[in-house]
Computed example of a mutant assay.
Amino acid sequence: MLASGAAALVAPRMAFAQKETIKIGVLNSLSGTTATSETTLKDTMLMLIGQQNAKDGVLGKKREAVVVDPASDWPLFAEKARELLTVDKGAVLFCCRISVSRKSVLPDIEELNGLLFHPVQYEGEESSKNVFYPGAAPNQQAIPAVDCFLEELGVEKFALLGTDYVYPRTTNNILDAYPRHDRRVPDEIYDLFLMLKEMTRRRGGDLSGGQQQLAIARAMIMRPKVLLLDEPTEGTQPNIIQEIGHVISHIKARGNVAIVLVEQHFDFAWTLADRAYVFDRGTVAISGRMEDLSVDTVREQFYI
């Protein structure tokens, strides 16, 4: 009786543990041409799942890794992804070191309304409500590297190399087009910021004090439609504040750029603005066109 009673107590606990696991599909090639890089991703996922389970899992439930090897076969990725979602009932998939494998599984993921984490860099130019893309796209990784070559290292020519598949082809196309844009600083920028020409070879982090306001020049080089200036006078010496005011006035007079100026320097903001909004604890206390506002009333509210 004691033995059977003990068995009766143990069996439900085993059934509960099996029922309450959250299955995580880990779909990475452990054999074939891409196994070297994808095996590391599988090992990382198992390590993270183990760490979470050691802390009582998620919402009190243990996570269970279902590891599948699609053997570097792109069509097989799609087949195995569908199995993980429909047969194994995976709550989410971590998959696809290579972009072509992500492209292969995407139609099935979207059809079944599954959830996919693509954990490494990718080429961009894709967006799906069923996919998380935490890795860097070219504008976050490759393009900053090109900027470093061109602007800081003075490199004028470099080669674009890559394996013949979607990620290298797409990224190389983006980079091939990128330097062809007009990267020349317009003469009017040099006219507005007289110190800029002598600083063109200086690193941005080496600028100090008011010279950091040359960030306005960098923004104007991009030919924006809207220019947002967040307290440009903060920590700046009076003569530089005056120069910034002249620059803003010049940009304003051109009439092709809307300027949003957030500023605590009252006189500076009052002389430049066409319309004012004074905030008090996140609420608009006063607003209107400058000709309709009393400078004394606004100043009083400004300093409350």
Rank of each mutant, 00 (worst) to 15 (best):
D69Y: 10
D69R: 11
P70Q: 04
A71W: 03
A71N: 08
A71Q: 12
S72C: 13
D73N: 15
W74L: 12
P75F: 09
P75Q: 09
P75S: 05
P75Y: 06
P75N: 08
P75V: 07
L76S: 13
L76C: 08
E79C: 01
E79N: 02
K80M: 11
K80S: 01
K80R: 13
K80W: 00
A81C: 07
E83L: 13
E83I: 13
L84I: 03
L85I: 11
V87L: 15
D88E: 15
K89H: 15
G90N: 07
G90S: 11
G90K: 00
A91R: 08
A91D: 01
V92Y: 00
V92P: 00
V92K: 00
L93I: 08
L93H: 07
F94E: 03
C95E: 02
C95W: 00
C96K: 02
C96V: 12
R97C: 11
R97D: 05
I98L: 14
I98D: 01
S99F: 06
S99H: 01
V100D: 15
V100T: 12
S101T: 05
S101H: 06
R102L: 02
K103H: 10
K103S: 10
K103Q: 12
S104D: 07
V105N: 01
L106C: 04
L106I: 04
L106N: 04
L106R: 10
P107D: 06
D108K: 11
I109N: 06
E110S: 09
E110V: 11
E110Q: 12
E110F: 03
E110T: 13
N113S: 11
L115W: 08
L115H: 13
L116G: 05
F117R: 03
F117E: 07
F117V: 14
F117P: 00
H118R: 15
P119W: 04
P119A: 09
P119E: 08
V120R: 02
Q121P: 02
Y122H: 15
Y122E: 03
E123W: 10
E123M: 11
G124S: 07
G124R: 05
E126P: 00
E126K: 07
E126W: 09
E126V: 15
E126T: 14
E126R: 09
S127R: 10
S127K: 06
S127G: 00
S128H: 04
S128T: 01
S128E: 06
K129A: 09
K129T: 07
N130R: 09
N130K: 08
N130D: 11
V131Q: 09
F132E: 03
Y133S: 10
P134Q: 14
P134L: 14
P134K: 13
P134S: 15
P134I: 14
G135M: 12
G135P: 09
A136P: 01
A136C: 07
A136W: 01
A137V: 11
P138F: 03
P138K: 07
P138T: 05
P138H: 06
N139G: 05
